[in-house]
Design a protein around this nucleic acid. Sequence first.
DNA 1: GGACCTTATCAACACTGTGTCGAGAGTGTC
DNA 2: GACACTCTCGACACAGTGTTGATAAGGTCC
Lengths: 224, 224
Amino acid sequence: MNPAQKAGSRASGDAPATARGRRPARASGDDRERAILETAERLLEERPLNEISVDDLARGAGISRPTFYFYFPSKDAVVLTIVDRLVAEADAGREETLARLASDPRAGLRQGLEGFYAAFRSRRAVALAAAELRASNAEARQLWSQVMEGWVADVAAIIEAERARGAAPPGQPARDLAIALVQMNERAQYASFAGEEPAIADERMLDVLVEIWLRAIYGDVAPG
Amino acid sequence: MNPAQKAGSRASGDAPATARGRRPARASGDDRERAILETAERLLEERPLNEISVDDLARGAGISRPTFYFYFPSKDAVVLTIVDRLVAEADAGREETLARLASDPRAGLRQGLEGFYAAFRSRRAVALAAAELRASNAEARQLWSQVMEGWVADVAAIIEAERARGAAPPGQPARDLAIALVQMNERAQYASFAGEEPAIADERMLDVLVEIWLRAIYGDVAPG
DNA sequence: GGACCTTATCAACACTGTGTCGAGAGTGTC
DNA sequence: GACACTCTCGACACAGTGTTGATAAGGTCC
């Protein structure tokens, strides 16, 4: 069994589905669990996930490698726990913005994109690790898929509402538009976090993305 | 030395820099080299890169694992050789379209995006492997970076030309717009190839992307 | 035809990393 | 003081990578 599959099999235990770490109990071992998570976050600031071993995490937390496996079933599970939290924060921000959005969609849009950007930029290392994990871990893919789906559904609803009230012109299906725009943001922001070249400079990121969103949603183009 | 670094060190030989495979000579061993490449392409249709071992490639080509290392310095080098070719094809298509583009930018744009999409869709497995490799291999990142840069530069030039002749309204820097749009396409197409959810359906992909490109480049939005 | 190079091959090895097993130590608690 | 439960780790088994060294198998030059 390869590690990617292994990480997905934790659910066969008895803990609530949200607890990705240790099995049932609660004790002073909570310290260790936290130490592992903190070590992971710290090391991810220094180097990519694939250059961090279980041994690195164990040593960083002051325990042996077998003891690590008492707390987490795999390296992937540690990262997924961290990503879970980040996603929860970002989702909270999304719902908060969504309320404000009804009154003024255009201004609200910028706020929404800003919240998303800020949430992930503040923990770049984790965001990059999540992206890296997605390549090899089915659970990470599914988690991210859910995040994207949430954003897409919201954006599609906004576009449809704006079209219905005549503020936005008709065009390609709202959901498809939403998918492309959300994916654009994800990719542009990843490139920036990862220091890719080419990438949009940090300070222009929001202005550029917002302009494209507004034009894609509200702009119309005469044929020819 | 980890495999990611290893793959980048091939250049220390005497072969031309484009030959990513064997060192100097030419003999019947060319068959083996081809067999390895074909095995890699075949296996990539079945499963992701990280589930394919050097042993799989060697056995598939009818040789032992040490013999594999006579032909390629690593698994990564095999994939990079394949990706190199795909990129060369896609680039050729780009330059071809670019000529036609001067006369009618809007129609040409669609053709350009279509060529890009078609090139990678026809070898989905390779495109996905390239993306996977990017996460762990610096040379793969650099190769892709160059591909992106080529597209971005072309698109930015087109946008600037269209703005100069008054066909497109002013807005965010042309290069930033180009980066975001090219990245959007990359991401949307990857999602489709990888069977992600959400993703734009294959048959609507081009229409959706083209609409966003046209609106982003030619559309203007009244404030408020 | 035999000394010599080059190409090509692989068994055996050294190493890194993962995950498991089983034998304990420490801390209750009835 | 026997049982249980949490926690720990040395030692193991295993998978994968990349290297070494011995050895063919063929060409070529004299």
